[in-house]
Design a protein around this nucleic acid. Structure first.
Length: 465
RNA sequence: GGCUGGGUGGCAGAGUGGUUAUGCAGCGGCCUGCAAAGCCGUGGACCUCGGUUCGACUCCGGGCCCAGCCUCCA
């Protein structure tokens, strides 16, 4: 039985889809004006494994992840760069896809863009106007009237009165209530805009997700996800808009992933303490980033540090080393590994507990190494199980030797494979001559270059540490 | 100030009312020319103060501390 922590109820609950056997899921994606940083990578990877797990349970999943390709920051950045909005967003959409692909993130089934959803957005705003949930402010903007929606604040656990008295809300005379938010923003001269019944303008941020999600998935769907920072106000506003417009419940399960932190502080653009995926990829292999993300529960903070990435690397090396040895052993007898499969499944069913699932992988690895050393033919089956379960997390799908010899860590420096092979031939000669001093000298040389050796029965193997 | 989540061994990170998490690092052993990898064994923890209980790291209450949201942010 799958259990999911639902932000709406603040409880772990049994997951029951609206339509048996099917899951409809929407995740807030990127605003494309810059490269993805680790925080974005976490969203991509976390919901990727959620989709993978749901599918492994046999659900037919429709996964939608939107792209916000029009907003204030995009407009500002395009202006700074002196390029068109379209050129800017296309560039960063392509970059995002590259990063996601590198991290082994499966593409969503639909990837709607705000600028391609204007009709739906306008229709929804019109419905909100018709039903009295929206009004035009004195500046021409269309606002959502929060006081019309009694449930406002349920998702984020906030009370409307508290929000008003907190009043860190921007002062805007055009609004009737400081809590009201923009649905349609009147365009200033020269800004990208679309015609509407009210004025030339562009969509507010929150409405696009309401329009795109209900368009792709229907007015009522199963899962809505995103970073914890979207819980309020973005997701709160989505609920208010969607439920007011459709008169139906919007979403059954809200899933929010925790932040990536740096030195115990949220990684964010405004703090400037972020690391982009491509920066990190200069130092680490993509799978190491993926492992790092999965090594903590999706809802917990994830502290970014070089040390933690290194730990991810060590862990992956252990897993791949076991796989490499066993593949070469070649044994592939059937073995009853149901216990491991079951424990893995149980872990994932418990609110996608990836650290627990990884622990199962390591226990499997120990069993595998032991079996192999003892010449137990069960090794082949254990290796196959390890690879299969790793695959459910999007891990361990590379050729072990390819991973272990890695290209990263090099970051452009470091010896080439040819240089390494040349040194290994020299060392081999020294060893054959029992010239241990020379052999050890060459080994030390390689270690200095970040290459570790393993002398085995069938020769010497190496990997990049 | 309001609200949310959290404080676990050297580090990372799960979990449980009474039994080994797991990985890295450490220590001892096996293996190895020596290493590495691997295997076997091993030390080490549950912020604090009360309460409930035969028994709490795990449940309840107070305190302290941390992060986050309340403004754009994954």
């Amino acid at each position: 039985m799958l259990k999911v922590y639902n932000s709406l109820t603040r409880k772990k609950q049994e997951f029951i889809p609206i339509e048996p056997g099917k899951v409809r899921m929407y995740v807030c994606g990127m605003t494309v004006y810059d490269f993805c940083h680790l925080g974005h990578a976490r969203v991509l990877v976390v919901f990727d494994i959620i989709v993978r797990h749901l599918r492994s349970l046999g659900y037919e999943v429709t996964y939608v992840r939107n792209i916000t390709d029009i907003d204030d920051k995009i407009i500002a950045r395009a202006r700074e760069n002196g390029e068109s909005i379209n050129a800017l967003t296309e560039r960063f959409i392509a970059a995002m896809h590259e990063d996601a692909d590198a991290l082994g993130v499966l593409r969503p089934d639909f990837e709607p863009r705000a600028t391609e959803s204007i009709d739906n957005i306008l229709k929804m705003i019109q419905r909100l106007m018709d039903k009295g949930f929206a009004y035009q402010g004195s500046n021409g903007d269309i606002f959502y009237s929060v006081s019309q929606f009694p449930d406002y604040g349920r998702l984020s656990g906030k009370r409307v009165e508290d929000l008003r008295s907190g009043a860190r809300v921007e002062v805007n005379d055009a609004k009737r209530d400081p809590l009201d938010f923009v649905l349609w923003k009147a365009a200033r001269p020269g800004e990208t805009s679309w015609p509407s019944a009210w004025c030339e303008g562009r969509p507010g941020w929150h409405i696009e997700c309401s329009a795109m999600s209900t368009d792709c998935l229907g007015v009522h769907f199963d899962i809505h996800g995103g970073g914890l920072d979207l819980q309020f106000p973005h997701h709160e506003n989505e609920i208010a808009q969607s439920e007011a417009a459709t008169g139906e419940p919007f979403v059954n399960y809200w899933i929010h992933n925790g932040f990536v932190e740096v030195n115990e502080e949220k990684m964010s653009k405004s703090l400037g303490n972020f690391f982009t995926v491509r920066e990190i990829l200069k130092q680490y292999q993509p799978e190491e980033i993926r492992y790092f993300i999965l090594s903590s529960h999706y809802g917990s903070p994830l502290n970014y540090s070089d040390d933690n990435l290194k730990q991810a690397r060590s862990a992956l090396q252990r897993l791949y080393t076991a796989l490499r040895e066993s593949k070469e052993t070649g044994a592939d007898t059937v073995h009853d590994n149901d216990a491991y499969m079951q424990r893995f499944q149980d872990a994932m069913n418990d609110d996608f507990n990836t650290p627990e699932a990884l622990a199962v992988l390591f226990e499997l690895t120990r069993a595998l190494n032991r079996a192999r050393e003892q010449g137990d033919p069960a090794a082949g089956g254990l290796a196959a199980t390890l690879e299969a379960l790793g695959g459910r997390l999007g891990l361990l799908q590379a050729e072990p030797e390819t991973y272990l010899r890695g290209q990263a860590g090099a970051g452009g420096q470091g010896p080439t494979d040819q240089e390494i092979d040349a040194l290994l031939i020299q060392r081999r000669a020294a060893r054959d001559a029992r010239n241990w001093a020379e052999a050890d000298r060459i080994r030390a040389l390689l270690i200095d270059m970040g290459i570790e050796l393993e002398d085995g029965a069938e020769g010497t193997r190496w990997r990049r540490a």
